[in-house]
Amino acid sequence: MTDHDDDLRLVASFREDLDDATPERLASVRATFLKQQKGSTMTARRAFLTPSRIAVVALPAVAAIALGAVALGSLGGETTPESPGVTGTSNGLAVDADAAAVLRYTALNTGRYTGAEHSTGDYVYVRDTFYLADDPENLDVRESWHEIDFGMFMVLLIENGEQLMPDPSNPKEDIEAERAETAEYLATHGPSLSIPTRDYLASLPEDAEGMLAALRGGHAETEAHVLFKKGFSVLTTTGETLAPAQRSALFEALATLDGVTRADGTVDVLGRTGVAIGFEDESGAREEIVIDPETSDVLGTRYRAPGEDGWSVQASSTKVVAEPGDTE
């Protein structure tokens, strides 16, 4: 740290002279952990055996979609003559269409998505306008640039006009070392959906099963919500580089995951209206991606922390550009 890191040095030294926990104290904490761990395992076993675990709920909306009962072309809330009793939205979907139906419908419309041409050395420019749940009045703009060909390595990050990365106030930051780690990782493990290259993205399968395998990345037991988050990330970062058939396969793959649900009606992410599809994990956190099922555009995302009512909301867009700092 340098002189202008005095504040950090001060924080680092705050209560530094408090006594460390003695070995006896830690041993007592360890014993508490082990005792609680044994108790929680028994509770979990009992919960697993309760009858409610095997209840299966049939969703009417799924059946309706399976039968092709999708209302077309009417505005939200109106009953359509094509499918009496089923209300439609401007997206041409039944308003009560479930998440899987929305995703499958979206998969049909990826041909209308205008993806970007890209070549070696290009960057993905990501622009997010967002507010956080604890500060909804404060709208921030975050822009970042990533190397498509190099694991989506972030080379520049600007928030509200202030450069945060490379961080001018943090001399400890060693971006070259991180680049070297990325290179080593790519050389050792090869590219993946999380750390892609252009060639890898171009080679992605064009069928749902293949795309699901790519999301799993060789880990067959990966939980559905983790796969969904991976798919989220692809759509909101490198999604623009996918061919329509790959994009379609991705939406179809996401439609097969258990536990994915949609928010009621349509959702506004900072003036952009779409359908919110998401997942609530075991902690109670819910994450959603807001899409336009007519075009397969990703409009934004929402996040709600466990036990809280407020949402962190952001509208997002991506673009392929030639240089860091370019926005067109």
Binding site: G151, F153, K229, S233, E287, Q314
Partner: peptide
């Protein structure tokens, strides 16, 4: 190592 953040979408 740079990677797409797998936890928060977008």
């Amino acid at each position: 190592m740079t990677t797409i953040h797998a936890d928060i979408p977008g």
